[in-house]
Amino acid sequence: MKKKVVVFGDLPIATKITKDLISRNNVNLIGVVLSKKKFNNNDPWKNTQCLSEFAKSNKIQILNINDLLTKKIKVDLGFTIRFNKILSRKLIDKFTDGIINFHGGLLPECAGLYSSCHSILLNHKKGGGTLHYLKSNIDGGNIIKRAEFDISDDDTSISLFKRTEIYLLKAYYQVINSIINGTNTSIPQQELISKGIKSNYFDKNSLIGKRKVKLNSSQDDILRVVRAFDHPDHEKAYIVINGIKVYLSTIKET
């Protein structure tokens, strides 16, 4: 029997995964849910459409959350792929096999928002993303796979974002067959916490006050702050001269 699947997402990575799902004989894609927010396409795949464009051009049904809650739509499995809305417990419970989230940071150490910024600010040696089951508490579900890579001294927020997208996609291909077949495994985040991995949660206010560079800091600390905010969708790090913000970047002169 085919798995009835819904994809939640907007970015090109969601398009790539949607393409793969509709190519599978054991999957019936019911539709996609979009956030209706316009995104700058910072993904590493410049020639891949955002999901809204792909869905419209391929006549894939575009659903909304209310459709899933109120209509008699039977669904087995959901994928929230860098989706920016919080789903309710009532909606999660509609999916008999659960909803799998593509989180843009390693769990449990980078739950919440701005993982690429915080990974650099905290001088983490490992970056990446996490495939995990959704629960009502944000980013708190069992982990299916951590997609890890080493963070270098040259990495910036945008480079971590792009590498995370690539590694999340690789992780998806490594586990999707077992997920569809119902044979995949997962572990509680507490199991990793008990082994010494620190749990962190970063909310929408977690970067307030962190962009201003302290010139009495070490060179390494100054560069770390600059790299953490070197991203086209974030205000950059800055110093203040005569009351004027002067923004800083790690872009090298040629």
Rank of each mutant, 00 (worst) to 15 (best):
Q219E: 13
L160I: 15
N42E: 12
Q219R: 09
L106Y: 04
Y238N: 00
H132S: 10
I81Q: 03
G104M: 03
F8H: 02
Q174Y: 05
V33R: 04
I120T: 03
I251E: 06
D10K: 06
D154A: 14
S157K: 07
V33K: 05
K204H: 15
S119C: 11
I187R: 14
S116E: 06
N41I: 10
G243I: 03
D153E: 15
L87S: 02
S23R: 12
Y238K: 00
N66I: 07
L134T: 02
A14C: 13
A147S: 14
I62G: 01
I65E: 09
S206N: 05
E165K: 11
N25C: 15
G129H: 05
F83Q: 05
N177Q: 14
L207G: 12
I65G: 00
N200I: 05
S178M: 05
V175D: 09
F102D: 13
N137I: 10
G128F: 09
R24W: 06
A237F: 02
T70K: 12
L11C: 08
I239G: 00
S57A: 06
M1K: 13
S115W: 01
N181F: 11
D221N: 14
P44I: 14
K16W: 05
F8D: 04
L91F: 02
N28S: 15
I144T: 08
D67N: 06
F8L: 06
C50L: 11
K2G: 03
I241D: 00
D67I: 04
D10V: 09
L248M: 10
G127V: 06
T96W: 04
K135D: 07
N205D: 14
G9I: 00
T80W: 02
D154H: 12
I197S: 13
V6L: 03
K204C: 15
T185D: 13
P108G: 10
I251A: 02
E148A: 12
V27K: 09
L68Q: 00
I100Y: 12
I22K: 10
H124W: 08
K56Y: 01
Q174M: 08
S23D: 07
L29N: 02
E191L: 14
G78V: 05
L87E: 03
L21N: 03
D43Y: 15
S35R: 07
D154I: 14
I176L: 00
A228P: 02
D155R: 08
A237M: 06
T254I: 13
K19E: 14
Y114V: 13
F95A: 06
P108E: 12
I13M: 07
I251S: 04
I176W: 00
I179A: 01
G196P: 09
T70P: 00
G128N: 06
N64D: 10
I99H: 01
L131P: 03
N28W: 14
I92M: 08
L68Y: 01
I251D: 06
L122E: 05
R82W: 07
N66W: 00
F161Y: 13
I60H: 01
I143F: 05
N26Y: 14
G31R: 02
S249W: 01
A55S: 00
I187E: 15
